[in-house]
């Protein structure tokens, strides 16, 4: 078949042009900005690695606190979301009346945007929790979202609520891929429910587990909407995650060059997670 070069480029052009303008060129310009003292308007002077040096030695914008907070949150959220997702999957994998309905309910929060969920839960944590405290006197429900502990766990609850059903769907697909013959054989050999769970189900869904682990890790690392809507990172920046910290540097304090240096560090962190993920998934695929 005759293949024209012109055809190739014509078919590629719409994606390539928008991709270049929206992703490629901004990434390059962004790295350049991180080496300048640009404040969002006026002149930009090239200052070498000064922004990075300041970031690593003398940061006064809470960046490393946010970094630690985000890392801790990402690890905690990944574990909780995957455990809840897997548990939900075990509950509804077997067909029974209502199983589809339950799946539908567990998955639904995932479709609603992070911003709306954040606002909805803000209402729950502020109004409903305080009302429960007033009614019962249980300290646990008092003053949520007013410090970093309740802010952290509130965000965790929101994320588990939102993403638990998503992971459930992925685990259900994995569990249904286990061949019936394997399960029948184990039943003939006399394996009970728990034994089957630990000796067959869990080992067989390990590949799905790697997918889920890293998907949620990079997702939680990049979390923005929920953080913004739930607490705005406050009070006093104590619940501010990385993405929001960069956003505030860029648009609230107008330290464009400095914010861009943070963004480059952010990019390197996220890219590292994703590259480890790729290697891990490839390895898992080879082994199974």
């Amino acid at each position: 078949m005759k293949r024209s070069k012109l055809g190739f480029w014509l078919f590629l052009a719409p994606c390539l042009i928008s991709f270049a303008i929206v992703v490629l060129i901004p990434t390059i310009i962004g790295i350049y900005y991180s080496l300048t003292d640009w404040k969002g308007s006026g002149n930009a002077n090239f200052i070498g690695f000064e922004n990075y040096i300041k970031l690593f030695t003398n940061d006064n914008s809470n960046f490393w606190y946010s970094f630690g907070y985000t890392a801790l949150f990402a690890v905690t959220a990944v574990i909780c979301i995957n455990v809840v997702g897997f548990a939900l999957a075990l509950l509804v994998t077997k067909k029974f009346r209502g199983a589809t309905l339950l799946r539908g309910i567990f998955f639904m929060p995932n479709l609603i945007g992070g911003l709306l969920l954040g606002f909805a839960w803000q209402f729950i944590f502020k109004q409903v929790f305080n009302a429960i405290y007033t009614a019962t006197g249980m300290e646990f429900f008092r003053n949520w979202l007013t410090d970093s502990t309740t802010g952290f766990f509130a965000l965790l609850i929101v994320m588990v609520w939102q993403m638990g059903g998503y992971m459930m769907i992925i685990y259900i697909a994995a569990i249904q891929n286990i061949p019936d013959s394997v399960i029948e054989a184990s039943a003939i050999d006399g394996a009970g429910g728990w034994r089957r769970l630990f000796s067959i189900t869990i080992p067989m869904v390990v590949p799905a587990f790697t997918v889920g682990l890293f998907l949620m890790l990079s997702n939680s690392f990049k979390l923005f909407d929920q953080n913004l809507a739930l607490t705005k990172g406050g009070p006093n920046h104590c619940n501010e995650m990385l993405a929001l910290n960069i956003y505030n540097s860029a648009f609230v304090s107008n330290e464009t060059g400095y914010a861009q240096a943070k963004a480059v560090i952010f990019l390197i962190s996220v890219a590292t997670i994703s590259i480890i993920q790729l290697i891990a998934t490839k390895r898992a695929e080879v082994e199974t």
Partner: peptide
């Protein structure tokens, strides 16, 4: 590969230059 690698770039990294473009 170019399109694939771009999936790694978080939005915060391009948002400022993109807005000026």
């Amino acid at each position: 590969i170019l399109f694939a690698v771009a999936l790694l770039i978080p939005f915060q990294c391009v948002m400022l230059p993109l807005m000026s473009i």
